[in-house]
């Protein structure tokens, strides 16, 4: 009888401990300005070469000198659909300042279905067909939407996993637009971009 009581107490203690740890970890996951998954801030964005829905191929490095919003999404992702009209508007608003929005579709669906969906959403920016390799290269993108904000030098300034407000997205766009064009700068100086954004040079596009 005593043994059973001891086992019960130990079991209850273990359960309480596990729940408390889970609650703590869950809080750290939910809060904070942006969910940073993996240490990608300040890192040079890995280049890729992906097909678009209309059969072209696009490299990330093609957009060096531009500020790139790289959005991983899927047709089955309802929160992704909330952001897409914002991206359409923001592309129109900031395109002239050097913003390029790129969507990376992580669907297993046929490209024609993805294209149909993107058309219905009024997408006005290139949609690329994502691969597991690209997901891995960007730190194993596990949930959608996940958006990388890449400055004009190709450095990841921020990463947002999950849906964020239009205001937060726009603030990040302003950050990457403000980054100076400094192609060819050494990696060490690029790595500091995430923390110390330089003001835009006078001749910036």
């Amino acid at each position: 009888m005593k043994r059973n009581a001891l086992v019960f107490v130990v079991l209850v203690g273990a359960i309480i401990g596990m729940l408390a740890a889970g609650k703590y970890l869950d809080r750290t996951r939910k809060h904070g300005p942006l969910k940073m998954v993996g240490n990608v801030k300040g890192v040079q964005a890995p280049d890729f070469d992906l097909p678009t829905l209309d059969g072209r191929r696009v490299k990330l490095s093609d957009f060096r000198g531009k500020a790139v919003l790289l959005n991983f999404w899927a047709t089955w992702c309802s929160p992704c659909q909330i952001e897409m009209p914002w991206f359409v508007e923001l592309q129109k608003q900031y395109g002239k300042d050097g913003l390029v929005v790129l969507g990376v579709a992580m669907d297993d669906s046929e490209p024609s279905k993805i294209a149909e969906f993107a058309h219905e959403m009024g997408v006005n920016y290139p949609v690329l067909l994502g691969t597991d390799q690209v997901s891995d290269d960007f730190g194993d993108v596990q949930f959608l939407p996940t958006t990388f904000y890449i400055d004009r030098d190709g450095v990841i300034v921020d990463k947002a996993a999950g849906l964020f407000s239009r205001g937060e997205i726009e603030n990040n766009i302003k950050k990457i637009l403000a980054s100076s064009r400094n192609s060819g700068a050494p990696q060490t100086s690029r790595a500091s971009v995430g923390n110390t954004l330089a003001p835009p040079p006078k001749d910036a596009p």
């Binding site: 899927a74 309802s78 929160p79 992704c80 596990q142 949930f143 959608l144 996993a161 999950g162 849906l163």
Partner: peptide, 11 residues
């Protein structure tokens, strides 16, 4: 295929 309040997860 699961989602939470702000994100979705692959099937």
């Amino acid at each position: 295929q699961a989602c939470d309040h702000s994100a979705c997860y692959p099937p």
